[in-house]
Every structure is written in structure tokens, then in C-alpha cells.
């Protein structure tokens, strides 16, 4: 099990991966086991991260995200760049549950969460909040963000999703279709931070003003910025 795990979903941009690698060197100090999980567009930063990867870190790549970006008919193992290895969302969430510190570098920003110093030894008792604050560029980005939520739902984690700012675009029209299964089947609660009360969607969501959204964040055991 990991003591430290970081989620990396940021699309490649000049310096982003190097910045992350530099921060990681500091973040994983003092932890016996450190893992990084590349998911979605983060997979495309594999080469840049590999060239500057801190040692002593278990580098994991989401199998499905890599498969989507690989040539059809080619082995996924061939697409891997050392020191990365294939992993699944389920394995990522198992690590999140036991980690003392969880960082996320997502399309909507970054977050860092450490275990409260109260003798708590597991995150499994606290709520996981996934925050979506970016508008999807394309269908694949939308789908992979939904899959982060479905992964938590598949493992029956105590989790919820908060859409804020540009993230509300995920729930527009056709995009809402996939998210609707979460509420139709009671898999996860969906919140929208909607200070002006203008948001309308076919999905049953809970609208929060900024104060209540802040309370939701404050009450979470872990926040993943997707």
C-alpha cells in the first residue's frame, strides 16, 4: 500500500511535467512507498516525466487511458516507457484509501491532502470529493473524467462529485447522459456550485452556494481535483 500517491491528469504543456516532478521530489520525502498514477491526458506526459522521474517512486499508467492513445493492434507494453507500468483505476483508488497523503494535479487545478493527525489510519471512513472545474475540450476528456467517478462508484466508496465554474459544461445536453447514471442508480451524489442559481440540467443535482460548497470541501477526507 502507498503512503503517498499523486494523480496526474494534466495535458502536456511546456514545463508542466517538469514542475510536477520537482514538486514530487519534495512531496514524497519521508514516505516509504510513493506512487504516481497517470490518467487521461496525463498519460501523454509519460515521456517528459520519464526523462526527469524521481527514483524510488512507483510510476503507474492507466491501462485504458493509454490504450485510447495507442495505435490499434499494438501491444500496450510496447507503448510503456520505463519506469512506468500499467495499472487500473481500481488499483489507484485502493492506494488512495490507505495513503497518508494524496495529491492531485488535474485539469481544473491542484490539491494536496494529508491525513489528519488524529491517529486515523485509513481514509476509508471519510468522504472522497472529486471536483470538476474545467470544461471538457472533447468527448474523450469528458468520458475520462466520468470514468474517475465511475471508478469510485464501482468500489462503492463514500464519494461525491462537485462541479464548479467551467466544470458545469460537463453536464450540458449530451454530456449529461453518462453522468446521469450516477444519480439514476444512486451511485454517487452530484453537487453543483451555482451561486446565482441559474444552472439547469436533466440530472438531479444538489445546487450549493459558495458557502455550502466550501463546507462540502472542508468536510471531505480527500479531495481529488480532476
Amino acid at each position: 500500500m502507498a503512503d503517498y500517491i499523486a494523480l496526474f491528469r494534466v495535458e502536456p504543456s511546456p514545463g508542466a511535467a517538469r514542475c510536477f516532478a520537482e514538486d514530487l521530489r519534495i512531496a514524497c520525502r519521508g514516505y516509504d512507498v510513493s506512487k504516481v498514477f497517470l490518467h487521461g491526458d496525463g498519460v501523454e506526459a509519460m515521456a517528459e516525466l520519464a526523462s526527469d522521474a524521481p527514483t524510488g517512486v512507483d510510476w503507474l499508467v492507466c491501462r485504458t487511458s493509454l490504450e485510447r492513445r495507442s495505435s490499434p493492434g499494438h501491444s500496450l507494453v510496447d507503448a510503456l516507457i520505463p519506469p512506468f507500468r500499467l495499472a487500473t483505476l481500481a488499483a489507484f483508488y485502493q492506494s488512495v484509501l490507505s495513503a497518508e497523503r494524496v495529491d492531485s494535479a488535474g485539469l481544473g487545478g491542484r490539491a494536496c491532502f494529508t491525513m489528519p493527525p488524529t491517529g486515523q489510519t485509513s481514509r476509508s471512513g471519510g468522504r472522497l470529493l472529486m471536483e470538476v472545474g474545467f470544461a471538457p475540450l472533447d468527448e474523450r476528456q469528458q468520458r475520462e473524467t466520468l470514468e474517475m467517478a465511475l471508478g469510485a462508484a464501482a468500489l462503492e466508496l463514500d464519494a461525491c462529485v462537485l462541479f464548479s465554474g467551467d466544470g458545469l459544461a460537463h453536464l450540458d445536453a449530451e454530456g449529461a447522459r453518462g453522468w446521469r447514471q450516477l444519480t439514476d442508480f444512486g451511485l454517487l451524489e452530484i453537487y453543483v456550485e451555482d451561486p446565482l442559481g441559474r444552472f439547469g440540467s436533466e440530472i438531479v443535482t444538489r445546487a450549493l452556494d459558495s458557502g455550502r460548497a466550501a463546507q462540502l470541501r472542508a468536510g471531505a477526507a480527500t479531495i481529488l481535483i480532476l
Binding site: E156, G178, R180, L187
Partner: peptide
């Protein structure tokens, strides 16, 4: 047809 993807096993 409804959601654009197959269901989770738990569903």
C-alpha cells in the same frame, strides 16, 4: 442506449 456505455457490475 440510455447512458452511452455499459453498466457497472454493481448496477
Amino acid at each position: 442506449r440510455e447512458y452511452g456505455m455499459p453498466p457497472l457490475m454493481r448496477v
